[in-house]
Amino acid sequence: MDVGTTVSDRPQTGYMSSIIEAGTAACRLYGPSKTNVADIARLLGKSPASVYKIFPSKAAIWDAIAGNFFETDLTFTPSAGGELTSAASRLKETALGQHRLMLQARHGDSQMFNLVVLAADGSWPSFRDHLKRLQAYIGELISTGIATEEFVPRNVDTAASCFCASIISLWDPRIIGALPSSHCELSAHELASFAVAALSQVAPGEESMAAE
């Protein structure tokens, strides 16, 4: 499914939110593959044509529903007082917290989880934006760790990109969906710990990056 521009204009923000809410409810009832715009319109008591006045296509509606789910249900919130802990601890907490949210969605909200798998498979804007937000936050934590001398000075954008790539198996819904039911968080903890520890070291050939 090709995803075009998300919304052509935004004159009716309230109605847009209602469409996303109804679309989420329909997806949970019928599943993303069986839900259609008529189902969403019926839940709203509106016509499909009125829905298309807000969203230019079915693909745009699905992307908006997925984007809302990423932001509301799949965005990890650090624990209170996190600013008092080390950057390394907060990085590990974020990596594992995001992983737990994905696991919880897989087991407790399977239809919406199926939708975000589709978003990842199709590289929808909602999924790309989700990864960008995660990487931006990781970059902030790495920058903090460099400032407090927990981490070796280096190009923050490059380090954040490498960190996220190294633990993507903890965050990608396609990989999470393929995990056996007996999956243990111990391996996730070890992977996150390994990735965080790498930021405290200068790898061979990395001296030039550290000097930037």
Rank of each mutant, 00 (worst) to 15 (best):
M1R: 14
D2G: 11
T5P: 15
V7C: 12
D9R: 15
P11C: 06
G14P: 06
M16T: 11
S17W: 08
S17M: 14
I19C: 01
I19A: 03
E21F: 03
T24N: 02
A25H: 07
A26G: 05
C27H: 07
Y30R: 14
P32N: 06
N36T: 10
V37P: 00
V37L: 06
A38T: 13
A38Y: 11
I40A: 06
R42S: 12
R42H: 12
L44T: 01
K46C: 13
V51H: 01
Y52R: 08
S57H: 07
I61G: 00
W62I: 03
D63W: 00
D63A: 09
A64F: 06
A66R: 00
F69E: 04
F69A: 10
E71G: 11
D73V: 07
L74T: 00
T75F: 11
F76R: 05
F76G: 08
T77L: 10
A80I: 09
A80N: 07
G81Y: 07
E83S: 13
S86I: 01
S86L: 07
A88C: 06
L91F: 02
K92M: 09
K92E: 07
K92W: 02
E93N: 11
E93R: 13
E93P: 07
E93T: 10
G97M: 00
L101H: 10
L101G: 04
R106W: 05
R106F: 02
H107N: 13
D109T: 08
S110N: 12
N114I: 06
V116I: 15
V116D: 06
V116S: 02
V116M: 01
D121H: 14
S123Y: 09
R128M: 14
R128P: 11
D129S: 15
D129Q: 15
D129R: 15
K132M: 14
R133C: 10
Q135S: 13
A136V: 14
Y137A: 08
L141P: 00
L141N: 01
I142N: 05
I142G: 14
S143D: 15
T144C: 11
I146M: 07
A147I: 08
E149P: 08
F151N: 09
F151S: 04
R154V: 05
N155T: 09
D157T: 13
T158E: 13
T158K: 12
F163Y: 10
F163I: 02
C164D: 08
C164T: 13
A165P: 01
A165Y: 06
I168D: 13
L170F: 04
L170K: 03
D172P: 00
P173V: 04
R174Y: 06
R174C: 09
I175R: 06
I175A: 15
I176E: 02
G177Q: 04
A178T: 02
P180G: 01
S182P: 09
H183A: 15
H183E: 10
C184I: 11
E185L: 15
S187I: 11
A188C: 12
H189G: 13
H189V: 10
E190A: 13
L191V: 01
A192P: 02
S193Y: 00
F194K: 13
A195Q: 05
V196T: 10
V196G: 05
A198D: 09
L199Q: 01
L199E: 05
V202K: 07
S208F: 07
M209R: 13
M209L: 14
A210I: 05
